[in-house]
């Protein structure tokens, strides 16, 4: 288990993290979402020992991550970093050695990963001569080359074209299959929804929601009802008790039902206006969950475990 536990950090007067905690099972992927400046990068940097937290710790298999344990973690920083003038193969070998592989093993692992990520022909080129997408692959190779037990990736998908996204996703899923816990942050919520077993949403230095996407849905589901009534007069639902109109556009209506409000009352009212072409509880997308979660400050009771 990879555990982030009660992380707190402030820079000067600004409280960046205020008790961030979540855990990731081996062989699962954790998507870390949050608006810009929410504290995702700081959280990951704490895990990598680049920022010292004011309180809390990160544990892997029950042991706090220290300098030694961190060498078993593959890391991709938010701001990509490679030696621009160093050759691709040598660079990847160098990072393998820094993670503790001996010269021969590092050379083999480097050749293997460079090939696997489709950079075989560019092995002897300096990194600065590569396209941005290929540099990103080198970055990934640097993170994977030491056969890490844990992967922590800050915005790994940013700047990739759809093909690049797919191949990176495939590489990460490969890692998950070998039992590696993967944590990555991303603004591409559709991707998080597609790839991740569980999701955490960070806002204002706190985890405002975490769990599987389904769990999050269940919490939100049962609240928003979509009713399409083409013939209804505008404002047809406004007078219904316990119902708030979220949006209404040419009969396509989103309704927020208060607790204890019977959906069948709504259906009856809808039928009263004429034809009903759509009536269903709406599955919120992760985007909506995210908007909802980061929109307003919540109390601690509402934060899911």
């Amino acid at each position: 288990m990879l555990e982030f536990d009660g992380l707190r950090k402030s820079f000067g007067d600004i409280q960046v993290l205020d008790g961030v905690g979540f855990s990731v099972r081996p062989g699962s992927m954790f998507g870390f979402c949050g608006s810009n400046g929410a504290g995702k990068t700081t959280t990951m940097r704490i895990a990598m020992g680049l920022v010292v937290p004011d309180a809390g710790e990160v544990r892997w298999q029950g042991r706090p991550l220290d300098q030694q344990l961190r060498r078993r973690v593959g890391y991709m920083p938010e701001e990509r970093g490679l030696y621009p003038k160093m050759k691709v193969g040598e660079q990847v070998t160098y990072f393998a050695r820094l993670h503790g592989l001996d010269a021969a093993a590092a050379g083999r692992a480097s050749a293997e990963w460079v090939d696997r990520l489709g950079l075989g022909e560019r092995r002897g080129d300096p990194v600065e001569k590569l396209s941005l997408g290929n540099q990103q692959r080198v970055q990934l190779a640097a993170a994977l080359v030491s056969r890490p037990e844990v992967l922590i990736l800050d915005e790994p998908f940013s700047g990739l074209d759809p093909v690049g996204v797919d191949s990176l996703a495939e590489a990460l899923l490969d890692q998950v299959r070998t039992g590696v816990p993967v944590v990555f942050s991303s603004h591409q919520l559709d991707l998080v929804e597609r790839l991740c077993d569980s999701v955490g949403i960070l806002a204002r230095g706190r985890m405002v929601a975490s769990g599987t996407v389904d769990e999050l849905r269940r919490r939100e589901a049962g609240r928003v009802l979509r009713v399409v009534v083409p013939d209804a007069a505008p404002g047809w639902a406004a007078a219904l008790p316990g119902v708030r109109v979220v949006s209404e556009q040419a009969g396509d209506t989103l309704l927020d039902l208060g607790p204890g409000t019977d959906d069948q009352t709504v259906l009856a009212a809808a039928l009263g206006t004429g034809r009903v072409t759509h009536f269903a509880w709406r599955e919120p997308s992760l985007v909506e969950l995210f908007r909802e979660a980061v929109a307003a400050p919540r109390t601690d009771e509402e934060v899911a475990a």
């Binding site: 940097r45 990598m48 020992g49 680049l50 961190r70 060498r71 973690v73 890391y75 920083p77 701001e79 990509r80 970093g81 490679l82 030696y83 621009p84 990072f95 820094l98 993670h99 640097a142």
Partner: peptide
């Protein structure tokens, strides 16, 4: 080149 962040992780 920001590579320092990767180096300091090890």
């Amino acid at each position: 080149s920001r590579v320092v962040e990767l180096l300091l992780a090890t």
